[in-house]
């Protein structure tokens, strides 16, 4: 991949431009522009954090399933084995793998969200 600019820098430049023009828009479009800027920020995070998140998901799922594989095929098999009842909350490693996947995905999708179990804000 070329580095001048990197893909995430393109995404970041678009996000900054949207933020710049937002104040000039009518209320409906200003709202949608904020959503669009958030979408660009999500793309940025996926580009920068996605590869490590996917590698961690692959690790977790392959250790439960007992074999290697690419993310998509492991994910399909993981889902099928949960659905069939072969994997449950009691199966060693299942919840641990899912916790890592959930934590990494929320960090990409909605980093400001405070999931169940988060302690109260300080102060």
């Amino acid at each position: 991949m070329i580095t001048h600019p990197r893909t995430e820098e393109l995404a970041e430049s678009v996000r900054l431009w949207i933020d710049e023009i937002r104040p000039t828009l009518d209320p409906r479009n200003a709202f949608l522009a904020r959503v669009a800027a958030n979408a660009m920020a999500t793309i940025y995070r996926e580009l920068t954090q996605g590869p490590a998140a996917e590698a961690a998901a692959v690790d977790g799922m392959s250790s439960v399933l007992g074999h290697e594989g690419a993310f998509a095929e492991l994910n399909t098999e993981f889902c099928a084995r949960i659905r069939s009842g072969a994997l449950t909350v009691e199966t060693p490693g299942v919840l641990a793998a899912l916790q890592v996947m959930a934590r990494n995905q929320i960090a990409i999708d909605q980093p400001s969200y405070r999931p169940e179990g988060t302690p109260p804000p300080a102060g």
Partner: peptide, 17 residues
């Protein structure tokens, strides 16, 4: 992309039971 919010909640509830 808000599905992952509910997943982050569900995984904690599944852990707690």
């Amino acid at each position: 992309r808000r599905v992952s919010e509910t997943e982050a909640d569900l995984v904690v509830l599944l852990e707690e039971g």
